[in-house]
């Protein structure tokens, strides 16, 4: 639990440094961002250590076994838990944003931020004491810190260059009208958010949903399936590229290339699809989910731009 929390802390620090570097300090961004970052840390550690397990226990024990919802929950346990967790996080994020907009006095923001940070530090300290019973390895902390500082610097420079490039792009005539009306910073943020959603989270969701239909889980088919699949991690890469290309074709309105992308994917596995009905069903479910999520992301992008 401690190492997971530490990874989350590093992630939040990394992104907050980059986003802070991209922003100019207009209408008190620094203070608001401080409150939001400390609130995210506080919410994570509170949820993972105090709310998550009681919540899961509540759902498993309180739904009576005759109820149809119980069957649904037992069958899709991991997905339901994932969705509920993300909904709670989303709620917390909305609450944080409301908190930031409501209070005008900067000292209130400072107070809230410090309170969140204090509770977070104390609970993280208590967790480390409970789990390791020895003092924290400072060597590893320094290593992580230096890696993330270098990484965030590189990312920040790249994003700044992109931002300047977008400013130049707005001067040229571009086929998409949305590019002209928005400020470059908003465009960069929206594009980044949609791209980030499209990669690893979507992979995890598709894997969770379609794992019920995975033919490799069946022991009789295991040896054959392992023989036929190629590199490890190639499936995730194919999925990422497919979603990226489909998003681009939606964005520029050329729907015919979607057909080409999907048929290339089917060609690559044609032997398995033709011979193994289980695999073809699994393949179709995965691909359809992928296209569905890509379309949802495209709609989100249009709404954001």
């Amino acid at each position: 639990a401690v190492s997971q929390s530490l990874h989350f802390v590093w992630g939040v620090l990394f992104t907050s440094v980059i986003l802070y570097g991209l922003n100019d300090d207009s209408d008190g961004f620094t203070l608001k961002w401080l409150v939001i970052v400390s609130g995210l840390l506080f919410g994570y550690i509170l949820f993972e250590n105090k709310i998550k397990h009681p919540l899961n226990f509540f759902f498993t024990s309180n739904l009576s076994s005759e109820h149809s919802l119980h069957m649904f929950y037992v069958k899709n346990r991991s997905i339901v838990q994932f969705v509920i967790q993300q909904m709670l996080y989303l709620l917390w994020i909305f609450i944080l944003n409301e908190l930031v907009t409501v209070s005008d006095d900067p000292w209130i923001l400072v107070g809230i931020g410090l309170l969140f940070l204090l509770i977070f530090m104390v609970s993280l300290y208590a967790l480390t004491r409970k789990e390791s019973r020895s003092h924290y390895p400072w060597n590893r902390l320094l290593k992580h810190a230096s890696t993330y500082i270098v990484l965030s610097a590189v990312t920040l420079i790249l994003l700044q260059i992109l931002l300047q490039g977008l400013e130049l792009l707005q001067l040229a005539t571009f086929p998409v009208g949305a590019f002209v009306t928005q400020s470059p910073y908003r465009m960069l943020i929206a594009l980044n958010f949609v791209l980030l959603l499209l990669m690893k989270p979507t992979n995890q969701v598709i894997r969770a949903v379609s794992s019920k239909y995975d033919p490799k889980k069946d022991t009789a088919l295991t040896s054959q399936a392992e023989q036929d699949s190629g590199f490890k991690g190639a499936g995730a890469m194919i999925g990422n590229l497919e979603r990226l290309l489909i998003l681009l074709s939606f964005f520029f309105g050329s729907l015919l290339s979607v057909v080409a992308i999907l048929s290339i994917k089917a060609f690559a596995r044609y032997k398995l699809i033709a011979e193994d009905p289980y695999f073809s069903e699994y393949f179709v479910i995965g691909t359809m989910l992928s296209v569905l999520i890509t379309f949802a992301c495209y709609a989100l992008l249009v709404l954001l731009l």
């Binding site: 990874h7 939040v12 939001i36 944003n97 954001l304």
Partner: peptide, 18 residues
């Protein structure tokens, strides 16, 4: 503001977990 918060959440929750 809210998109920035969502980005921070997505990156640290999905990309930084081992």
């Amino acid at each position: 503001m809210i998109i920035e918060t969502l980005i921070a959440h997505v990156v640290s929750y999905f990309y930084f977990q081992p």
